[in-house]
Structure formats: C-alpha cells, structure tokens
Design a protein around this nucleic acid. Sequence first.
DNA 1: TTCTTCATGTAATTAGTTACATGATTGA
DNA 2: TCAATCATGTAACTAATTACATGAAGAA
Lengths: 212, 212
Amino acid sequence: MAEKDPAPASRLTTTSFALLCLLGVRPWSTYELTRQMDRSLGRMWPRATSKLYEEPKKLARRGLARARSERVGRRVRTVYSITDEGRRALADWLAVPGDGPVLEFEGLLKVGFAEYGTRADTLATLASVREWAAERNRENAAAARSYAAGEGPFQERAAQGALVGGFLTAYYRMVDDWADWATGVVERWPDQPADARPEPGELEGIARRAEW
Amino acid sequence: MAEKDPAPASRLTTTSFALLCLLGVRPWSTYELTRQMDRSLGRMWPRATSKLYEEPKKLARRGLARARSERVGRRVRTVYSITDEGRRALADWLAVPGDGPVLEFEGLLKVGFAEYGTRADTLATLASVREWAAERNRENAAAARSYAAGEGPFQERAAQGALVGGFLTAYYRMVDDWADWATGVVERWPDQPADARPEPGELEGIARRAEW
DNA sequence: TTCTTCATGTAATTAGTTACATGATTGA
DNA sequence: TCAATCATGTAACTAATTACATGAAGAA
C-alpha cells in the first residue's frame, strides 16, 4: 500500500519566488535580504523578517539556490545565490501572468463604518492615512530622484525599476488624493456620522468616474 | 506560583472587528456574511469563507455578538447579531486610527523582475492586470450607478459607502492607467527585457510626479 | 428524478508573525 | 568601557487557507 507522498517539501509560494527574484540579481546574505524587504520588495510583497530566514532554506533544499557559510568574528552568516535550475524555475514562473493586487486596508474599513464612532475619529483616521501616504511618498521620491540622477544601485535594472516606481508613485498619490477629498466631505458631515447623507451629486460623480 | 493566564481567548484581530462592523448593520447568517465578503468587505479586507464561520464564534465567546440557531429543513443555520458590549468595543476600535493600506501585488513583482522572462510574458501579465481592473471596475460601477439611482440596500449608509466607493473607483482606475502606460513602455522594449533601458525623460517624469 | 448550484459547516494543514536570544560593531 | 544599534538567527504560536463533506432547493 502506497505511503502518502513523502516529503512533498511544501510547494513553492509567491514568497519563494519573490526571494528567488532577488537572488537573480546577485547573492545576498539573509540580513541583506531583510534590507531589501524594507526598501523595495516589501512595497509589493511584504513579509516578516523571520520568513526571510526560513524561505531561502526551502529554495536550497529544492536546488534553486545554494547556501554558503561565511564567518564574521565568532559567528556564522549564510549567503544565498541562485542556481541554473533556479533561473529556469524563475522563467517558468514569469510565463504565467501574476495575480492582481490584493489590498488590505484597515483605515478604509474604519472610514466605511464611520457611523459606529465619532466624526473626529474618522477625521483622525483620514489624517493618519495622509501621513502614511506622505511618508511612503517621501521614500519613493528620494529613490526616484536618485535613479533619475543616474545614481543608486543596479542601474542596469533601471527600466524594470521604473515600471515599479511608476506604479508606486501613482498609488501613493491616489491614496493621498482620496484621503484629502474624503477629509473635505467628512468635515461637512453633521456631528453624528450616522446622520450623514451623501452630498448632492456625490454619488453621481463617483458613478461617472467609474465609467470607462 | 501563578499559572500562565488561562484562556487568553486569543485577542481580537482586525478580522474580528471587520465582521463586527457588518453585524453592526444588521444580523446576518454566516452564509450571508460570505456574500458580503464577495461584494463589499472583501475589497478592503479579504478573507476565506471558513474564517467567516470561525470568527463570529469568537465574538460570541467574548460577548460581543450573540448566536441564534434557526432551522432550514433538517439542517440548522446560525444567525449572529451584535450586543451592546459589541457596539462599545466597536466604538473603542474606531477611536484608534487604522493602519494604512497593505498591498500584495504578484503581477507587479513579475513586471519588476521582467528580465528573467520574455517581453511577451511581461505584456501578458500587464494584459491580465488590465482585465482584473476592468472586471473589478465593472462591479464597482454597477454598484455606484445603483446607489446614485437611490436603489441598493442600506441607503441610510450611503454616505459611508460613498467614501469607500470613491476609493475603489480611483484605485481601479489608477491600476488600469498604470498598466496601460506600462504596456506602451514595454512594447518599445527590445526583445530581451534584460537589455531594456529607461526611455529619455522616463525616470525624470516619475521623479517629478513624486514631488508634492 | 436526477443534476447542479446554493448553503452550511468542520478538519487538516500551512504560511506567516511575534517573541526571544545573542554576538558584533560603533560611537560617546 | 559601556550602551546602543546592527546583524543573525530559532522557537513558539496563530491566523488563515485548502480540502472535504453534505443537506436543501431549483431546473431540466
């Protein structure tokens, strides 16, 4: 009687491939990978640090990456690099169109159910959304400026980076524009958000902008 | 010697409160909750169906919701409703500004590492992003039209719904605009994406749009 | 009457996070 | 030379998903 498939090695996830993409650029130590998560990868595929220590081990077990140990003083660090098989796996993965964006937005949830709190709560949430957008945009603008000036690492990847940068720029801008608009609307609400009614033309305006 | 806190009942998450928000509107059976996940809640806080069967039990254990059993033929269904304590918990939760948007976008990841695949791969991924945006926009436009016409459920919540609708409209539009722009850029790439270089003024244009 | 889709869940598994631990490096 | 921060991981836990099971209702 057949055993249940031994060591199915838990299939590769998008997170696996995200890390494999980074390894495609050059070898990285795990800590360096965590830096990229803060700077670049985390903007489109955010994951906790510990995942970045765990996932490359799986890539190595599958033969898609190779782990090498270096020593730094008394302690050891691991540097991962991609293998030829890893590059093939990457090409296969890229041949399948990726999923669309998945959004989790707690702030929008709170705005959408504003009626159970106060008007001040909603305005505070919108203000914090604007802060978020401004902060993200600051980083993003700095990176864009640096690339436009021909500085920054991986200039040979600038064309790909520009597509990502173009997305993020538009995204942060859109979030800020929305929060700005919504703030104006909520400022005209009565004190009890439950009593708020759409302004004349508001629903029509949204419906119109959704026609394309 | 003190025991480690018994039955910490695993703290309430954003998912708990998302469901509690829905219960604030009216009582729902679990299946009805799954419908809302497809229609409204899932656009800002997507979760799998089984979570919607599990999470309200936690709300009930905590006294934030009440479960009632109905029978439909030979089988039983559960209908949940919010309690006064649940409404208080909701108000407390709304008083804390929510987190900013968290984005997971596999398609963008594939575009950002286009160099490991073919130009055709990238164009196909962008096309599927545009399809995604068009499909989401279709739903959203239909909902917007229906509200603008004074139809649709929960008219008394139209002001809050308009804020969410305003966000989604701008969001889908932005995704489509980006994918459209990116398609044009990639169409002018050489056959090997690894040889692609930014067009003159492209990086500067992004940097400029990021200044606000 | 049978097939399909709607409706209502549970069980098993896993992807991911939080919390913790400790050595190395830097600067006051 | 001490404290703070950078760097490198592991262990424990849990939030969430996938897979499965089955009754009810409506259509052909």
